[in-house]
């Protein structure tokens, strides 16, 4: 059997945002200026921490309930965010720990450094996590976050978004990104979104309304698939070693 456990495909750093993107001002002083040093993956890169169901609590993937007082729930547009995690070869990636965080329906974060005047929701923490199944499938239930202003230009607003963090099977697959919502006019205006140059890449981060998986009279669904780095086959590498 072919073992897909070799080195990861190199990252396409023209597809990802560059580190230095002056329209996103904070990047100017936080972007390394010297070329990155490349080397082939060793076990230090192809291994990584892997988590299981024992690490998760029952309500972890339900942001409507996991911070709510008994008998109450978070305020806002109820949505299901779901999709699959695949690798670049199109194979499902099981057992991916997906962590999400987001602002509440008014665009306010439960964070001591967020001073936006929109109120906190006492029933919303803004944090959740889930594990992909054998088919790479995952799902969350939450409320749609609100857009919020941020200090960059004089009047920059973030489109509604959910932050995503993913652990694949190797540390080299580690990824943090953001999910946007189809049809949001702020996507085109946002300096953080526009750190990504290819419109197709931005489209990959834009969840689509999924009426087929909407639960009538309960919650709309948004579909959001994610792709982690793929790996080379080690079939020939093993033969070369004489196995």
């Amino acid at each position: 059997m072919t073992q897909h456990d070799g080195a990861y495909f190199p990252r396409d750093r023209n597809w990802h945002p560059k580190l230095l993107t002056p329209d996103y001002k904070t990047s100017v002083l936080r972007s390394p200026q010297k070329p990155l040093i490349s080397f082939g993956n060793s076990l230090s890169e192809t291994t990584g921490p892997v988590f299981g169901h024992n690490d998760l609590g029952e309500l972890d993937s339900d942001l409507i309930q996991n911070y709510a007082r008994s008998g109450e729930s978070a305020l806002g547009e109820r949505i299901i965010v779901h999709g699959r995690v695949l690798d670049e070869s199109g194979r499902p990636v099981p057992q991916v720990l997906i962590e999400v965080w987001q602002a509440n329906a008014g665009g306010r974060y439960r964070h001591k450094k967020d001073g936006y005047l929109a109120p906190l929701d006492p029933n919303f923490g803004g944090c959740g996590r889930a594990l992909s199944d054998d088919n790479g499938y995952y799902a969350f239930r939450t409320i749609k976050p609100g857009p919020y202003p941020w200090p960059n230009g004089v009047n920059d607003w973030r489109p509604a978004h959910i932050h995503f963090s993913l652990f694949g099977s190797g540390f080299a697959q580690r990824l943090i990104t953001q999910m946007y919502f189809e049809g949001d006019p702020h996507i085109a205006l946002c300096p953080i979104v526009n750190t990504i140059k290819d419109p197709q890449a931005i489209d990959m981060l834009t969840a689509k309304l999924d009426m087929n998986n909407t639960i009538p009279m309960n919650a709309r669904a948004y579909r959001f698939d994610l792709v982690l780095r793929g790996r080379r086959s080690t079939l020939f590498e093993n033969r070369l070693e004489g196995n």
Binding site: G90, W101, H111, C127
Partner: peptide, 18 residues
């Protein structure tokens, strides 16, 4: 082949989720 999901900054409020 698919393309990897492009990265975005973790932002200032990474603590909330992580």
């Amino acid at each position: 082949y698919l393309k990897e999901s492009p990265s975005q900054t973790a932002g200032p409020y990474v603590h909330i989720g992580c």
